[in-house]
């Protein structure tokens, strides 16, 4: 059976690509520290020597729209074009083409449906920065086949936080039951406190540093009980109006498993939102 060699949870900051590639006067003062943290984070994936990446993210009203909105969707295609005109326009993100791992997509869909998750699917999916940002930060070669999984953290009514955790737990089991010798990393991106299009946006820090601190502790310690006790669909409005993206972190806590302490934890306090990076090695840290 397949092996889950790493579980990785991260923010997906669309400004990283431009900040890290900028030079001279255009290079922001925080770029060097940010790049250094990303290189250390990238090494945690490289060391795990993955063959396949399961990528959990959230479409930002690109291909998924209110006339036909799935809650959880699995891509099943041989290739995925990536990044959209408005992401090139606003963030300078490059067009990308990623290979798909259709066999694993099919396995996740079949086993997910049989486990009670009514997963939607897409055979022609153009993916966005929720998935390409971690490719850029963690695997810039973009050479590994992926299975994209989209969650709705964006367009209410949303699934409950517990459902994200349950789906994460199921993804872990399903990947580990895939009849394959391949090494799989499960990578998911979400947000800590975040405000978009509201009065608290683009401040000197994230809109709710206290929430961010608690959230990082929940994730780093695998404290699903503590997290689920405090986080509800209603409560997530308070830290910032886009904070429902935190539920993708909760999904990844489900993948890592209750009580699983992360092997790599790092944060970066930026303007607008805090960056956070977590890696778990389910089978122990790889030896060099």
């Amino acid at each position: 059976m397949a092996t889950v060699v790493a579980v990785i949870a991260s923010t997906h900051h669309p400004f990283y690509y431009r900040a890290s590639t900028a030079t001279g006067e255009d290079r922001p003062p925080f770029a060097d520290e940010w790049t250094s943290k990303i290189l250390a984070f990238r090494e945690t994936l490289t060391r795990a020597r993955p063959d396949v990446l399961v990528m959990v993210g959230s479409d930002h009203f690109h291909q998924l729209w209110l006339d036909n909105m799935p809650q959880f969707l699995v891509g099943k295609a041989p290739s995925y074009d990536a990044n959209w005109y408005n992401e090139e326009r606003e963030f300078g993100l490059p067009r990308m083409l990623l290979k798909g791992q259709e066999d694993l997509s099919g396995h996740i869909l079949r086993a997910g449906l049989d486990a009670g998750f009514d997963l939607a699917f897409s055979n022609e999916l153009r993916i966005d920065h929720s998935i390409t940002c971690p490719i850029i930060t963690l695997r810039p070669e973009a050479d590994l086949p992926i299975v994209p999984i989209y969650t709705n953290i964006f367009a209410p009514p949303l699934p409950q936080p517990k459902r994200f955790v349950q789906l994460g737990e199921a993804i872990r089991e399903i990947v580990e039951s895939w009849p394959s010798h391949l090494r799989v990393a499960v990578i998911g991106t979400g947000h800590l406190s975040l405000e978009l299009g509201g009065p608290r946006q683009f401040g000197p820090h994230g809109p709710d540093p206290e929430f961010d601190q608690r959230a990082v502790e929940w994730i780093a310690n695998g404290d699903l009980d503590g997290c689920l006790r405090e986080v509800t669909l209603d409560s997530l409005h308070a830290p910032g109006n886009a904070t429902h993206g935190f539920m993708d972190f909760m999904l990844m806590m489900g993948v890592a498993g209750a009580g699983a302490k992360a092997d790599h934890v790092d944060t970066l306090d930026l303007f607008h939102t805090m960056e956070a990076y977590f890696t778990w090695y389910p089978n122990g840290a790889p030896t060099a």
Binding site: H60, F61, N86, R89, E90, F154, A155, L196, G197, G198, Q201, N241, A242
Partner: peptide, 17 residues
Amino acid sequence: LFELGAHPFLTLTLFIA
């Protein structure tokens, strides 16, 4: 638009453009 409940992400993204 914010008051009317337009999705804040959509409004922000377009207005930045």
